[in-house]
């Protein structure tokens, strides 16, 4: 279907966002000697091996002990280090919520919690590993910045940018190969939404892998004469409320799209902003109070309604409610 569409953004290559993290991590390690790495027995999965090889004295394998990893990371900031912790999103959040809450967020420590294999697109491992609640948990913590980039290039840029941000960051990325449709030389500004496509009938606020689905949905809507604005919300917290409201003032309705539960996700944050400052019809693309299951990423996104076709339906519904 994509081939025949007139897409505003295109790609020639697919790559996993976790590789964007791994390559960005090596680059930021070269730029900033205070950057250190910790990993809980997932160096290969997180693509942290190149950094470990080049900077063995700044990299710590902590074994399958995530709580300890978070504590060690918090302690290392006290000596001026900028620790990047690496494990799956599930074990980066729910498993260690209390450690993050007390030793990192409440203590305002400069730890970068780097979380791979987030969401349904982890695929075949199934629901134990497919966390769909992590954004909610992290965004509820005061002091925490929450970032969910959309492709390899944006993940790499975000990984480098967070080293210069003072304070805890949750950086979420994923496992599957995914279109690389944003520029390699992009400037990553934490907290600044990126309006990728101008439109006037509806705004699609998308984050993570679903930004690509939003780009596809925009082309599908355009074929039907509907003008959709696509905004890439890579930083879920702090939310760029100014960009959200500016777009809504123009389009008058919204769709959120994310690989996460409705509860606690990006849609939740957008809805809060709308209800407080600019009440407007809004539809949600996400997982509706359910766990995931085994399957291929494409099958899972289809089954749970997290693809372009469903964004199109939601956009029409939102427009009809205006």
């Amino acid at each position: 279907m994509e081939k025949t569409l007139d897409l505003k953004f295109t790609y020639t290559e697919k790559k996993d966002t976790r590789s964007g993290f791994g390559d960005g991590f090596l680059e930021v390690g070269r730029k900033n000697p205070n950057v250190v790495g910790l990993c809980a027995d997932l160096i290969g999965s997180l693509k942290m091996g190149a950094f470990q090889k080049e900077f063995p004295d700044r990299f710590f394998q902590v074994g399958i002990a995530e709580a300890n990893m978070m504590g060690i990371a918090a302690g290392m900031t006290i000596g001026g280090k900028i620790p990047y912790t690496g494990t799956f999103a599930n074990f980066s959040t729910g498993r260690v919520y209390d450690q993050i809450r007390q030793s990192i967020a409440y203590s305002d420590k400069n730890v970068k919690i780097c979380a791979s294999h987030a969401g349904l697109t982890l695929g075949e491992d199934g629901a134990t590993h497919q966390i769909l609640e992590d954004v909610g948990m992290m965004k509820m913590l005061p002091h925490m910045t929450v970032i969910n980039p959309c492709d390899y290039n944006q993940t790499k840029a975000a990984t480098i940018a967070i080293a210069d941000h003072q304070g805890p960051v949750y950086l979420r990325f994923g496992r599957p190969n995914w279109p690389i449709f944003t520029p390699a030389d992009q400037k990553f500004e934490i907290g600044k939404a990126w309006k990728m496509i101008d439109g006037k009938d509806v705004t699609i606020f998308a984050t993570g892998h679903l930004v690509w689905e939003a780009v596809v949905a925009e082309a599908m809507l355009r074929e039907e004469g509907i003008s959709a604005e696509v905004i890439n919300i890579h930083t879920i917290k702090p939310l760029d409320t100014e960009a959200v409201l500016e777009s809504l003032a123009k389009t008058g309705c919204a769709v959120s799209a994310e690989e996460h539960q409705y509860n606690g996700g990006l849609g939740d944050s957008i809805a809060q902003t709308l209800s407080r400052f600019h009440p407007a019809p809004m539809e949600f693309i996400g997982v509706d109070d359910s766990f995931g299951e085994s399957g291929t990423p494409t099958q899972l996104l289809e089954k749970y309604g997290l693809n372009a076709a469903n964004i199109v339906k939601a956009a029409k519904k939102a427009i009809a409610r205006k």
């Binding site: 709580a67 504590g71 918090a74 302690g75 290392m76 006290i78």
Partner: peptide
């Protein structure tokens, strides 16, 4: 230098500070 109260976390933090 760090909050404590929820038990069990201080030794990890101390290890991190010692490694730094």
């Amino acid at each position: 230098r760090i909050a404590s109260g929820s038990l069990g976390q201080g030794l990890s933090v101390a290890i991190g500070a010692a490694l730094a």
